[in-house]
Simulated assay, not measured.
Amino acid sequence: MIFSQKKTPEIDKTELQIPLFGYDLLRKDVLPDLLGKEHNIILYWAGKSLARKYPVSSIDEIISFFSRAGWGDLTLVKEKKSELIFELTSHLFIDKKTAICPLEAGFLAEQIQVIKGFIAETNEELRSGTPKKVIFHVKWDIHDRTV
């Protein structure tokens, strides 16, 4: 069968919006069912893998990626010798008792690992209030260089 070579108009993917309900269905119901009780750790490693597919070279590019991916507004709030602290706010966290972001945490860990040149890991914590925030602590050991 020969398919038509007719061109379809380009869709500006930056303007598309996903309904919050649909996002929640995938993130909170489908993925945990598919991945089982270890879904958070699997999503963390999936975030690291995603970072390798979409490498960046600066923190500004990480912040831009979060925005483009619809993950929320990422802000670097503190920089220490071997730790970066980021804050993530998003309309996705409204009316949520908990907001966990293992995919985003893994993505951050891998990107910072490449940028800093040391093995890095990210821990997250939920800060209540209005708006709710997820705080990411990205830490690395200055004695544990990447190869």
Rank of each mutant, 00 (worst) to 15 (best):
I2K: 14
F3H: 12
F3E: 04
S4I: 05
P9W: 10
P9Y: 05
E10Y: 09
I11G: 00
I11P: 01
Q17E: 15
G22M: 10
G22Q: 08
G22L: 14
G22R: 06
Y23L: 10
D29M: 09
V30I: 09
D33I: 05
D33M: 09
L34G: 00
K37T: 07
E38T: 08
L43E: 03
A46F: 13
A46V: 04
R52K: 12
P55F: 11
S58Q: 04
D60V: 00
D60T: 08
S64K: 14
F65K: 13
F65W: 15
D73P: 00
L76M: 13
L76I: 10
V77P: 01
K78T: 11
E83A: 09
T89M: 05
S90N: 12
S90I: 13
L92G: 09
I94R: 10
K96E: 15
K96D: 15
T98Y: 07
T98G: 07
T98H: 01
I100M: 07
I100R: 05
C101Q: 12
E104P: 12
G106H: 02
L108Q: 07
Q111W: 13
K116T: 08
G117R: 07
I119M: 11
E121K: 11
T122Y: 00
N123E: 09
E124L: 15
E125S: 15
L126Q: 03
L126A: 09
R127W: 08
S128Q: 11
G129R: 11
G129P: 00
W140R: 14
D141K: 09
D144F: 03
R145Q: 10
T146S: 07
V147Y: 03
